[in-house]
Amino acid sequence: MLILELYVFVLAGFVGFMVITRVPPLLHTPLMSATNAISGISLVGSMVAAGAHRGGVATALGFIAVVCATTNIVGGFLITDRMLKMFRREPHGDSAKPEKR
């Protein structure tokens, strides 16, 4: 089981490295906010901690973790979208394609 998890980790890290190397510096800030939003996936673990009836302490810690992770997901995806919406091509450049609306 552990070996399988290591496989997943290493291969995912490798995919991440390959993909992210190609992200242009232009979009590095959206990249950071996007990975930040995606890291909110720890909500998956937080929800189990908050809802599994393992005593008051575990529920309380889980609840705070759910709040933190949800904040990151909601805030992270919204701010990434807000930024990406701002990036526009030249409206009448020679190489520019007509913008779809």
């Binding site: 997943v8 980790f9 290493v10 995912a12 890290g13 490798f14 995919v15 991440g16 490295f17 992210i20 990249l31 950071m32 990975t35 930040n36 995606i38 890291s39 996936i41």
Partner: peptide
């Protein structure tokens, strides 16, 4: 997977 993506980035 997400941790690895985030860490790599």
């Amino acid at each position: 997977i997400c941790g690895a993506l985030d860490g790599a980035s």
